[in-house]
Structures are given as C-alpha cells and as structure tokens.
C-alpha cells in the first residue's frame, strides 16, 4: 500500500508543491508552522480539494493524474481521515459511526456491525458501542473516530492533529492505541502534528513543510540532530526515552539512569529539552542530580544555537550558545560531562 504523490496547489495567496513517496506501512509525520499547507496537502490527497498539477498513486491505483485528467472522487479512494475534533456523526451511536464506512461501501448491515464491533474492541472501547458521541469523553470519541477511519481498511490513513484536542493523560492512551494499530498494519499513514513527541514515537520519517514546500525530510533523529531551520530546531530535538521507573529514578531502555522531579512507577516516557542539558569540561559539583560522562558525536549550527549530539548512554541532544560551544572546544570525539537538573526531566506513564 505504498503512496507516491506529487501535489501542486496554487491559490491566490498560497502555493503548495510537495513530492512525497512513502513505502508500505510507512508512517510520515508532517510538521510545519500554521499555514504551511499541511491540511491542504491532506485534503488534496483525499480528493477533497482540487490539485492544479500532480499525480497521486496509492496501493497500485492512480487516484489522480492531472496530465491524463484522471480523478477519483474521495469516496472511491481508499483513504481514512481523522481530525483533531473527532467529527463523529452526532445522530449515530459509536457502533453506527464505525459501521458507516462499510455500510456506505455496500457491506450488509449485520456484517458491517460485526466489523465495527471488532474495531471498537480492538481499540479498547467495545463496551461503549451503544453510546452517542455526546456521551463520550474526548479520548473515547477520538478512538471511535480512529476506528471509523480504520474500518474501511484504507490504503492511506490521514491524521490531522489527531491528539491535539486531548488532555495530557488521554493523549498518552490514544497515542499508544494509535502506535499499536499503525505498527501492525501495512497502511501508509500521514500524521500532521505539532507535537515532537508524537512525531518521534509514532513516525519513522518526518517531513517539514514551510510555506508550501518541503524544507526537510528524514528520520526524526536525523532532523533533530541537524535541524535546517530555527523552527525545526525548536520543534524537534526533544530527547525522548522509554524506561522503567521505580518511584525515584528511571532505568532507561537504552542504558543509563535519569532522576526526574516526580517519578511514577512502571513503564514511562521521559523527555528532556535540549536546552536543559548543560555541558562541562570537568565533572560538575553541586545540585544537578543527573550527571554523566560521554563524548560528542555531532555539532550543528541551528539558527542561533549550536546543537550538540552526545553518544550516551543516554544519547542526547544539547543546545548551547555559540560562545559556550567555542569555549568548550566542542567537536566530534571530544569528551565532556553532561548534566541536567531533576526538574528538567519529565516522566509520564507510557
């Protein structure tokens, strides 16, 4: 179910020109400032807004080709679309919402209901099947929306900030459900997000859009290590680790330990902003709870800061001012001490 798309959209005040190829099962996070064209790109792929020039091919079927004049309407493309506000049909129950797609595609009522129930069960909300959307919490409704989009077995899943409207704890749950379904499917997924954690945990590739054009394209780690613009640097580069917490410290899966200000017990996701990591030539004394010795792998200028890659464990990105970087004589291979205060280390249940 690979996707190959070139989409050019020209409006009076705006132009979008994107070339994108995604292999089977690929999950691409689309990042970019507001107005960069992310939603326009998704709508064009879904056939909901017109493309001035381009070609979209998915799963071996040509959906659109402006050269030959071919155009498939949205209902005949295999796409699933999920918005940040779930947009469930208010007059239908959760089950009927999920069964809507199969029904619209001609599946018999009983079979459609059976599939819908299976999807709700799969997303852990099987017991809410009879509820109307108004009786669901935000996280529950978003899972129903996800089940609704998946129930048609789309070749391409388009997620427009699917977690943006959820509160922090619900976000973690829905993100995990999303990671599970994406992990086991061959569906291509485009995920528009503002959250670097979503991009890092869900996507195997990140595309950065600015002013309608792709400015950077690579794995989350590549982009974080060498962001091409200040905007990307601010957004990406958050150090994200998985680990197990014992109530005080977190043993990271990749090795090393970090002490957060507040540690839950059990599996956690730990985040540390690159700006919170300080580097020293000598072992530092005083308050930092987390100190480790490592060596520099990369040094990149990103906007006004220098982004330094550290080998670890834990491997990390640290942002320094140009002056500080020069003073330490940072270059790949140089040995340094890294430190971060406990209250800059955030752990939340995974």
């Amino acid at each position: 179910m690979s996707l190959a798309a070139r989409v050019a959209v020209r409006r009076e005040t705006f132009a979008l020109d994107v070339d994108l190829g995604v292999p089977d099962g690929g999950v691409v996070a689309v990042l970019g400032p507001n107005g960069a064209g992310k939603t326009t790109l998704l709508r064009a792929l879904a056939g909901l807004s017109s493309v001035d020039e381009g070609r979209v091919e998915a799963g071996g079927t040509v959906w659109e080709d402006t050269a030959s004049g071919r155009w498939l309407p949205p209902e005949r493309r295999g796409v699933g679309l999920v918005f940040s506000d779930h947009l469930l049909f208010g007059h239908l129950t959760a089950l009927q919402n999920v069964a809507f797609g199969p029904r619209a595609r001609g599946v018999q009522r009983e079979e459609a209901r059976r599939r819908a129930q299976a999807w709700l069960d799969r997303l852990g909300i099987g017991d809410l099947a009879a509820r109307r959307p108004s009786a669901l919490s935000g996280g529950q409704a978003q899972r129903v929306a996800l089940a609704r989009a998946l129930a048609t077995e789309p070749a391409v899943l388009l997620l427009d900030e699917p977690l943006a409207a959820l509160d922090a704890s619900t976000r973690v749950e829905v993100r995990r459900a999303l990671a599970d379904v994406l992990g086991e499917r061959r569906t291509v997924c485009l995920l528009v997000t503002h959250d670097p954690v979503d991009a890092t945990l869900l996507a195997d590739r990140v595309v950065v859009l600015e002013a309608g054009a792709v400015v950077q394209d690579g794995t989350p780690a590549e982009l974080a290590r060498a962001p091409r613009t200040g905007w990307t640097a601010r957004l990406l580069g958050l150090n994200v680790y998985r680990g197990v917490a014992d109530g005080t410290a977190v043993a990271l899966d990749e090795g090393g330990r970090l002490v957060p200000a507040e540690a839950p017990v059990g599996a956690v996701v730990v985040t540390v902003a690159p700006g919170a990591i300080a580097l020293h030539a000598e072992q530092p004394h005083g308050s930092p709870r987390n100190v480790w010795r490592t060596h520099v792998t990369t040094v990149e200028q990103a906007g006004s800061v220098v982004r330094v890659g550290l080998a670890g464990p834990p491997a990390a990105l640290a942002d320094l001012t140009s002056g500080a970087a020069a003073e330490l004589g940072l270059a790949p291979g140089v040995e340094v001490w890294a430190s971060v205060k406990a209250n800059e280390v955030h752990a939340e249940p995974d």
């Binding site: 949205p74 209902e75 679309l81 918005f83 007059h91 595609r105």
Partner: peptide
Amino acid sequence: RRAEDAAATLGAGPWYVARRVTLPA
C-alpha cells in the same frame, strides 16, 4: 462541512452523504 468530508472518505457518495449525514444534522 468536514463531517461530510469524513463521510466522503468513508466511501459515501454525494447522495449518501446528503441522506445519512447532512439531513440528520
């Protein structure tokens, strides 16, 4: 209109969307 867009991506043609999504709304 985005609810109608969602319905279209789910496989509903314009009349189906009108009957099952827009009119109930």
